[in-house]
Nucleic acid binder design. Structure first.
Lengths: 353, 353
DNA sequence: GTGAAAGCGCTAACAC
DNA sequence: GTGTTAGCGCTTTCAC
């Protein structure tokens, strides 16, 4: 899609020209005073009057600090970098949103560098390395890595040069701190909701059984059941591709079981979407004949299916914010709570249970 | 969601310490030579041998240029800024992807600043102003504004200080260049596809009739029809909320018309999703009994509906790339093609026609 | 090809 | 409270 431009020599940017020196002169004070006032330094009694004079000068001259120069002199950039495949594969965008918002609140800037969707384990680490390198050239104070789906990853070696936090993924070969969803808790809460509605025979549409999401969610489901003295019927647990079609097929198999369940726990919303079709095709009604609960809370699906899908949300935004908070603690030299922080996956009631 | 941290004083970032001076010494050359080699300067005959020596030194020392210092000295940052609500409201994310990729190709960095979803016309311009200001403090060389949906916007005044390009929106009160989708062409291609399949009686599920998307798409539809000597039956054009529910209701009204159409043009995919339900409820089959065509190509919907939805795609990625290309031309002092560039909305064949 | 020198806009000591 | 003095790491003349 994108086409490489001929390298265009950019014309030097027209600076506003107004520097801190100009402000100082205009206000009739020292540059030091201006610097102090503008950076809100403490322990420096500058009279309210001078302060006001300086601020006026700033206004009148239209002075705008030069963030780059400040970073150079102070050896502090106020930038974090996030390298992520999310830009490329629009899922889990809310991680970026959460991180951005939190960074903004902390008066920090988030530099976003795209990486390839390919797992860093693979041969495709080139882009990821390049992104990290670029970020480091900008002298970011900390690094965030975010994945579209929960998994183990390998991070470029140079990430060790600054504090680093992983979001929605974890360090497959080291001890970098990470923020991940509490899949197990999510699975538990989903099935608890089903139990509460009186369902005891529950079918499960499973993901690829080896990924952390599947492992955790299923574990949680079993926990909830056994707490109620029940267990999963292995014949009612079927895996499929993580798509609507996969969900459709899996649902067909479950629904055509001689002893059909009264509820379906779909391990993601896309599969639930397919399950809806299978259910409707059989003339069954949701939730009267069969209850459905999903996972992921993909707005576009969950909120638009009819009936709207009750599902467990992945706390992307919160994870993003927490990632930045953790990074802030690290760069401030503070200890962090734990190597791996689990974030709750809350139940979102809609109309399918 | 995000919670404000207590302002953490960040510990000065541990620099790698290796500067250009070190490289020069290590290679036994002047710093000037190093600078020339690293920035790939032309018209400067440096022997292959020295060049190699310098590169080796860079490797051995693990030297990493300081982008900030370079920007300060050269008065050229190689950064563009994009302020957008897309981060906040995850629609049209591909604009960012397209822009990012193109920027990356051009060896430039894209700083993303979030703005509020609120239209800049409203009172909520605060965040947008702040974002622009922050970007300018970073001395970005150009500014991009991107919207989630096609509309007129007002851009902060300070945007005039650097070249600026609007993406998926246009300057409501000025002459800033913009990149927008060719809505009319999209409407035309959709209806042409329907005509080609033999449909002559076509229902339209319309959006809010005043927005550019509705105006353009409908105009295109009329064009295609009149080219075939046909016209739209006003009774078959019904507006609804841009949601699945809105689409459902509109579809009901159209389908229950005594002289039912054989095809439905839904002005967005969400509404098509609702229309599907209305159609299925009536025991009709897509596309045998009634063909459906959408608009937007929202993957999650279009690719997962059953049958998969034929729809017209919004060229977000291309628009993003084109925005950066246009900006590159502007910052290089080149003339640009036109104040407003239209980007094609291609038809995406799936199975609903 | 080199080296010196000036300067980008700012921070941070330090003596006043 | 102020002014001075050093840089931060790099680019860019310019004379050699």
């Amino acid at each position: 899609m994108a086409k490489s431009n001929p390298p265009l020599p950019s014309v030097p940017v027209r600076q506003r020209g107004v520097t801190m020196n100009d402000v100082a002169k205009h206000a009739g004070v020292s540059r030091t005073a201006v610097s102090f006032v503008l950076s809100n330094r403490e322990n420096t009694s500058i009279s309210e009057e001078t302060r006001a004079r300086i601020n006026t000068a700033v206004q009148e001259l239209g002075y705008r600090p030069n963030a780059g120069a400040r970073a150079l002199a102070s050896r502090r950039s106020d930038w974090y970098g996030i390298v992520t495949e999310i830009v490329t594969a629009p899922f889990a965008v809310d991680i970026i949103k959460g991180a951005q918002d939190q960074a903004w609140l902390d008066r920090r800037f988030l530099l976003i560098a795209p990486s390839d969707q390919a797992d860093a384990v693979g041969p495709n680490q080139g882009l990821e390395d390049a992104a990290t390198e670029k970020l480091l050239e900008q002298r970011v104070e900390g690094l965030l890595y975010a994945a579209t789906f929960h998994r183990g990853v390998h991070v470029p070696a140079s990430a060790n040069e600054v504090p680093t936090v992983l979001i929605n993924c974890f360090d497959a070969d080291g001890k970098l701190p990470s923020i991940v969803p509490d899949e197990r808790g999510g699975g538990r809460v989903a099935v608890e909701r089903l139990l509460q509605a009186g369902h005891t025979r529950i079918g499960v549409i499973n993901l690829d059984p080896v990924i952390p999401a599947a492992v955790g969610r299923l574990e949680g489901a079993r926990e909830a059941l056994s707490a109620a003295g029940l267990e999963l019927d292995p014949e009612l647990v079927v895996s499929g591709y993580a798509t609507a079609d996969g969900g459709y097929e899996a649902a067909c198999r479950i629904l055509d079981h001689p002893n059909r369940p009264t509820a379906l726990f779909c391990l993601n919303d896309r599969m639930a979407m397919g399950a809806y079709d299978a259910i409707k095709e059989r003339g069954l009604t949701i939730p009267a004949d069969i209850a459905v609960i999903g996972f992921d809370n993909q707005e576009l699906i969950a909120a638009y299916l009819r009936p709207k899908l009750t599902t467990v949300a992945l706390p992307f935004e919160k994870m993003g914010a927490l990632g930045v908070q953790t990074l802030a603690a690290l760069t401030a030299g503070q200890p962090i709570l734990a190597d791996q922080q689990l974030v709750d996956c809350p139940l979102l009631e809609r109309s399918s249970v």
